[in-house]
């Protein structure tokens, strides 16, 4: 039964994506929607990205220092570990898991509300490909914005580590700055951005799928929202293993 249900979801999701990735009825309308979605899904997420990244960068520096107090370890290791953790995992995977909650629930509830209030039917009756009109700008906008969010998260996270290191005197400014530059591999940033692009697609498309096929009332839109967040999080974790294995192994 579970296998059948999963197959059914995969089938419905695929057919929805086929409807989404077609030529828009009016490019003018698409390009009008795109900046709005970039603002709503990307710019409006900037606040939470900055807050969380700053604090996580700071906490990571404190914890790394506590756990690497061995005198044999070089002093710059705190900055090095903080940098690599932020670049490899936090700013892409963990940040996207957080954004799956914020952006995923936003997208699923918006489209779900449109479904139950017959706004999607209204688009269909007008002869508009509702999936394409509603979902394509969201996916493209979020995929375009996510590299910016990831890079900002990395920068702000490192800055958070710097602040706590310098102000609480657990690591010297020079050691921290040396650590975050030591053996720096630009490939890590590329790897992180590639992952985040995939995750952004998963978040926007899975949330749209659950919203688009929601039915009933407000309670069902809430359920669709929850399902969107849970399932996109699971898919992010699964695809993280696949991409990491493919790119780093």
């Amino acid at each position: 039964m579970i296998t059948l249900s999963i197959l059914k979801h995969i089938g419905s999701y695929t057919s929805l994506m086929l409807r989404v990735f077609t030529k828009p009825d009016r490019w003018r309308m698409f390009f009008r929607q795109l900046p709005k979605e970039m603002e709503k899904l990307g710019l409006d997420s900037l606040g939470i990205v900055i807050i969380i990244s700053t604090f996580i960068g700071a906490i990571m520096t404190i914890q790394t220092k506590l756990n690497t107090s061995d005198p044999l370890l070089p002093k710059y290791s705190t900055g090095l570990v903080t940098r690599d953790t932020l670049l490899l995992e936090f700013s892409s995977t963990i940040m996207c898991l957080i954004l799956a909650g914020k952006v995923g629930s936003n997208v699923a509830s918006e489209i779900g509300s449109m479904r139950i209030s017959e706004q999607i039917d209204a688009l269909e009756v007008m002869g508009i490909n509702s999936a394409n009109y509603l979902i394509l700008p969201k996916i493209i906008a979020f995929v375009l914005m996510i590299p910016c969010l990831v890079i900002i998260s990395m920068a702000v996270g490192l800055f958070g580590g710097y602040l706590v290191g310098v102000f609480s005197d657990i690591v010297s400014q020079n050691d921290y700055l040396f650590g975050i530059q030591y053996m720096f591999q630009p490939f890590y940033i590329f790897y992180s951005i590639v992952k985040s692009l995939v995750f952004a697609f998963i978040i926007a498309s899975v949330a749209s799928y659950y919203g688009f096929y929601s039915y009933g009332g407000a309670l069902d839109v809430g359920k669709a929202s929850t399902n969107a967040v849970v399932n996109s999080s699971i898919l992010i974790l699964l695809s993280n293993i696949v991409i990491t294995n493919f790119m780093l192994n």
Partner: peptide, 29 residues
């Protein structure tokens, strides 16, 4: 369907658009 107009039970006006934008929407499309 472009020859069809429909009035839905709950009106189904687009929440994110003003009254004027709602009416202009099919024209723009």
């Amino acid at each position: 369907r472009q020859e069809v107009g429909m009035l839905f039970q709950g009106s189904a006006l687009f929440d994110s658009q003003t009254v004027a934008q709602n009416v202009m929407f099919p024209l723009e499309m």
